[in-house]
């Protein structure tokens, strides 16, 4: 699949933002006063920038409000509704913490749950797509949820939780890769079933329908990323989860926490780029790749 920069930024930044908001919502000792302004401001900014990046991905952003209507059937619509609901429900809790020093735990918890649901909805947009076997698997949502929660814990300065979540994230990523490598073969789709000619013999593309490129090839048959998959996995695992986990085991300081955050975000960008770039769509079978 095409690794669109807007989608990579959206899923990493808004994931991190909603992860932070979840921690701020569930926080037993929620920050108050100036600290609350900084923490909640960061959460809202990350979530907002991510959502804005996603809007840039649209062909007709002026019609984006329509995306709030189909929550009964569409995960993308659910994501829109849940993200807006999270930001709305969390707002009184954030304002009360920042300006009156009295967090509103009920709204905080509700907002936290909504933030988690938003991240789950983001993951389900990809996990629901059967035509991309690598994504269509239970191991996809844990990667998104743990990445958001681990990054959010780091931002919210919940360093012990962040350490354990980073380790869980590394396991989830490895599980997703190991399972993912077998998904396409396990989907049962091949050139034979795609053309229905598999019963007659071995099917091979002789002539593509056109000599140039097209939307389908650009969007769904991205082959460059598959070449470097192994290296990128090591980068994602090392920088995104294990490196930060190691730093979190050292005596806590601003420097190690900041370094862990930078490493984690770099690693997550690599992971998300690879998530799209190495995912094979079954339509590639019609194009011999």
């Amino acid at each position: 699949m095409h690794p669109a920069p807007s989608l990579i930024l959206f899923t990493t930044l808004s994931g991190l933002g909603f992860g932070l908001l979840a921690w701020l919502g569930f926080g037993l000792k929620a920050p108050t006063g100036f600290a609350a302004i900084v923490f909640f401001g960061l959460g809202y900014a990350l979530a907002g920038i991510g959502l804005l990046a996603a809007a840039f991905h649209l062909g007709h952003p002026e019609r984006a409000l329509l995306a709030f209507t189909q929550w009964r059937s569409s995960w993308l619509s659910r994501e829109a509704v849940l993200s807006a609901a999270t930001l709305a429900v969390m707002a009184p809790h954030a304002a009360a913490s920042a300006f009156w020093g009295t967090p509103l735990p009920v709204l905080g918890w509700l907002g936290g749950l909504l933030a988690l649901a938003t991240i789950l909805a983001t993951a389900m947009i990809y996990a629901q797509i059967r035509a991309v076997p690598r994504w269509h698997h239970w191991s996809t949502p844990p990667v998104f949820l743990l990445a958001a929660l681990a990054g959010g814990a780091l931002l919210a300065a919940k360093l012990t939780a962040a350490l354990w979540l980073m380790l869980a994230l590394s396991l989830a990523m490895v599980a997703h890769w190991v399972a993912g490598d077998r998904r396409f073969a396990g989907s049962g789709s091949d050139a034979g079933t795609a053309t229905g000619l598999g019963k007659i013999g071995k099917v091979r593309l002789l002539e593509p329908p056109h000599s140039g490129r097209n939307y389908l090839l650009r969007e769904m048959v991205h082959v460059v990323g598959r070449k470097h998959a192994h290296k990128l996995r090591l980068i994602a695992l090392g920088l995104g989860a294990l490196g930060p986990a190691f730093l979190l085991m050292l005596p806590a300081s601003y420097l190690t926490a900041l370094l862990a955050l930078v490493l984690h975000m770099t690693g997550m960008l690599a992971q998300r780029w690879l998530f799209f770039a190495e995912a094979e769509h079954v339509v590639g079978l019609y194009y011999g790749r």
């Binding site: 035509a131 939307y215 969007e219």
Partner: peptide, 11 residues
Amino acid sequence: IGCGLCAWACP
């Protein structure tokens, strides 16, 4: 809205 998700969903 031109999000392209339907094209992704079609095998």
